[in-house]
Design a protein around this nucleic acid. Structure first.
Length: 473
DNA sequence: AGCACA
């Protein structure tokens, strides 16, 4: 104890493979140390950013003589050791090896782990990340994911040199604002090295890319991509618009058939075709409008809304790549409302004044003539005025929107307790997509929803007075 | 400008 652990001072230090460097520029990086020291021997370890000012470092040579040669050289040199123009003071360290030199993230490799701070999921698209990091070399692969640390991305370069060039340039910096959505204020990149050398990308998707393999299949279950469309370099949604919407129906506790979907989507314009199908165990539907603008309004209005109360049959909408569906004109999974069906049309509007001949409707509703159609009340009531609701006859403006779509289809068994009865298609979706000049009549306005208010909250919690319960008891 | 790490 008495002789060990004594501080050692200039000129009295015993040589060590480890050199202590002081007065380094702030956040001096390993590459700069190596550049300075490698003329004297093989560097086996470094420790950067030591000390309160993070301006000290340690360098460990493979051999003691190499360290000695460096100290000796600068002891007698007229030119001091320099990094970025700053004089660096070099001495033997009082330790003989660098221990715990690096956290794993400091071990250079060809794959970077990038933590993007201060952003929400979806604010920074994989395309923006690709753009930013491609400035340093070919980006082979990107995988993004959510961790406790935040939004992270693994970015694979060809080699560690390219990766470290990107890291040195971008670490602790921010992605340029013009590449980000407007609401993003800060976007700090914290970059370390990943232990990975080759990422295993299974699909091209909104969260992972393999730029070396353009034939890699697109993720078939990229449903989340629907909820969070990728952002283009301009920060705007780049999902191409279409007149055909793809609806994914989540939590489908109740049957959703073609007619229900027709009722829901007709509120925004003519529905031309509908196709329902199963994908990965989830029901999806394609709904075709005549043009993109109607589809856009419907998408905006219906996205995230539930067809029925209680979070049942929640809709997620995206634009389909299709523009014209090829569907069976009339099946239980599809409908083509553009094909005039004599028998349907004949029965459809018989006896109706002002029968909407022009408004080629579609709805095979009258097939169910005799069933209580009154229940559907408020959906038609909220039709944009330029359109004529197909089932005008039975519709009464002003009714509360508790129409129970399922009830109109007696073939279906909705024998559930009344308290569990889903309230209705009718009350959904009108929070924003509605033409402003259209005022639903009378009492139904009580159910008009303000933006931000969940669509299916029943104003009074039960079927409207005077309406029979249409469900099996 | 004077010695880290856990």
């Amino acid at each position: 104890m008495s002789t060990s652990g004594q501080p050692q001072f200039r000129y009295t230090q015993t040589p060590s493979k480890v050199l202590h460097l002081r007065n380094l520029p702030w956040e001096c990086i390993e590459e700069e140390l190596i550049e300075l020291c490698k003329p004297f021997g093989k560097i086996v370890n470094t420790k950067c950013n030591v000390g309160a000012n993070r301006n000290q470092a340690f360098v460990e040579f493979a051999d003691l003589n190499q360290a000695i040669s460096m100290v000796s050289y600068y002891a007698s040199s007229s030119e001091p050791a320099q990094v970025r123009g700053k004089t660096v003071y070099i001495q033997y360290s009082n330790r003989h090896e660098i221990v715990n030199n690096k956290s794993p993230g400091d071990v250079p490799g060809n794959v970077l782990l990038v933590t993007i701070e201060g952003v929400e999921v979806g604010d920074v698209s994989i395309d923006v990340i690709h753009l930013v990091f491609s400035a340093f070399g070919f980006v082979h692969k990107i995988a993004t994911f959510e961790k406790a640390a935040g939004f992270q991305a693994l970015i694979q370069f060809s080699d560690a040199e390219t990766a470290s060039a990107a890291r040195n340039a971008l670490n602790e910096r921010s992605i340029p604002r013009y590449l980000l959505p407007e609401h993003v204020n800060s976007c700090h990149l914290r970059i370390s090295y990943s232990a990975h050398t080759d990422l295993n990308i299974k699909f091209q998707s909104h969260r992972s890319r393999d730029y070396t393999n353009p034939y890699l299949p697109v993720n078939p279950t990229a449903i989340e991509g629907v909820v969070q469309p990728a952002l283009g370099p301009d920060g705007k949604r780049k999902e191409p618009e279409s007149n055909v919407l793809l609806a994914s129906i989540e939590n489908m506790q109740y049957a959703v058939n073609v007619d229900v979907l027709h009722t829901v989507f007709s509120a925004f314009g003519t529905v031309q075709k509908i196709a329902i199908f199963e994908k990965n165990g989830q029901t999806q539907a394609l709904v075709q409008y005549p043009d993109v603008s109607i589809a856009a309004v419907a998408r905006e209005a219906l996205e995230g809304h539930c067809i029925y109360d209680g979070g049942y049959c929640k809709l997620h909408l995206s634009y389909s790549r299709h523009t014209d569906l090829n569907v069976k004109a009339y099946s239980d999974k599809s409908r083509d409302y553009t094909i005039p069906d004599a028998s349907l049309l004949a029965s459809q509007v018989s006896g109706l004044p002002g029968a909407p001949a022009v408004w080629q409707n579609p709805r095979p509703g009258p097939i169910y003539a005799g069933n209580d159609y009154n229940t559907g009340g408020s959906v038609p009531a909220q039709y944009p005025s330029r359109q004529m609701a197909p089932w005008d006859a039975s519709m009464q403006a002003g009714r509360a929107p508790f129409g129970s779509v399922p009830s109109t289809y007696p073939g279906q068994n909705f024998a559930v307790a009344t308290s569990q009865i889903p309230s209705a298609v009718s009350s959904m979706g009108f929070s924003s997509g509605f033409p402003p000049n259209v005022r639903p009549g009378g009492a139904s306005s009580s159910s008009q929803l303000q933006p931000g208010i969940p669509p299916n909250v029943r104003p009074s919690g039960g079927p409207p007075p005077g309406h029979p319960t249409y469900y099996g008891q």
